[in-house]
Design a protein around this nucleic acid. Sequence first.
DNA 1: ATTATCTATAGATCTATAGATAATGC
DNA 2: ATTATCTATAGATCTATAGATAATGC
Lengths: 211, 211
Amino acid sequence: MKDKEGKEGGDVGMEERILACAERLFLGKGYNLTSMTEIAREAGCTQALVHYYFRTKENLFSKIFEEKFHQFINCIVKREDEDLPFADLVSARTSRLFDLMAENRRLPFMFLSEFVINPEQRLSLKDTMVTLCAEAVSRLEAMIATEVEGGRIRPTGTMDITLNMFSLVVTFFVVLPFLEEMGFVTDDNREEFIAQRKQEIIRTIIGSLRP
Amino acid sequence: MKDKEGKEGGDVGMEERILACAERLFLGKGYNLTSMTEIAREAGCTQALVHYYFRTKENLFSKIFEEKFHQFINCIVKREDEDLPFADLVSARTSRLFDLMAENRRLPFMFLSEFVINPEQRLSLKDTMVTLCAEAVSRLEAMIATEVEGGRIRPTGTMDITLNMFSLVVTFFVVLPFLEEMGFVTDDNREEFIAQRKQEIIRTIIGSLRP
DNA sequence: ATTATCTATAGATCTATAGATAATGC
DNA sequence: ATTATCTATAGATCTATAGATAATGC
């Protein structure tokens, strides 16, 4: 029996507990506003121990950041959906992105705060991003061309559709806390509000493509 | 003649120079990552002087934040546009929001980083926001109802249209630096890219409303 | 006299490390 | 023996203030 069971997890090792706390804190406040001291306090150990396991703060952060980043990209692109008809593919990807965001609402904030502030981080992940993005849109690009040719959608760039999807989904979860604070969303209507917004986003994206 | 002309402004007083530097730094990196020392260094004085003029960091930040915030809100809502036909009003507001963002690209980052981190800031501006937002959408709401009744647009909520507008415009400028870094946007095509995206956003919003 | 500016410093953090001690695995 | 944990502390910041000095306005 450990002396401190703490908030995080059950009877899991201290290293994992540190990771879990760090993840939560980094996601909530970004790199610079989270201190090793705070992570240690939350995990229930001294900050020396946090350094013992991860040596530097940068190290600890990278571990979490990169894991989240890959999880994020992989979730969006699923090869199976490439056999779907165009509208269904757009709908499926939007829906998946929406659900991922619903479960990781602070993710964009974490990305943003790090990327905007930390140009090195940005550079170091650039290649990964370019590759993964290219993969993500290659099939889409071809489909759009076909649809446009067939006159089923108006001429549109892959970039525009992708930006639309990303913008609508991500911003929604970013502003959600404010909508709650301002009383537009309450405990009673939250679930329905979110579900409706999801449908509306998909309708917006697909609907705006009609010729 | 002052001994230090510095980067910011011409022969303007030190107080204004401090304000200008603080604005640039706060906008770029948010409250917590900007130090009084750094502001002083940029403005070309000691940090004691920065405290002399603004007493606390919080004070200095609030001054800038609130000014920017009001500028932001007032820019979006212009009463004259309320006489325009529906599509034109949506288009005009989107366009204005787009232009404002184009000139203050770090604004959303500043808002976000402060709001997400600083619940007090959020609370203190809540009332202002609610009032201004209500004003901004009241006329829109009536127009939407009329349009829907007349069968000219499909049934849609004011909230959805507003969110669409906000999401599409703001996210574009947030991700623009990444698109540049990834090579999708270059010095050569930037202007055109931005102009096209603006049109596409308006098309998306209006187009998605067709019945 | 008042306003603007500087130097110096107290007091809070924070990261990282060194070195001691307790727990564990063989 | 090795791994996990702690205490203590060095060395960097940072905010804020006190107190001295220079510049300005009457």
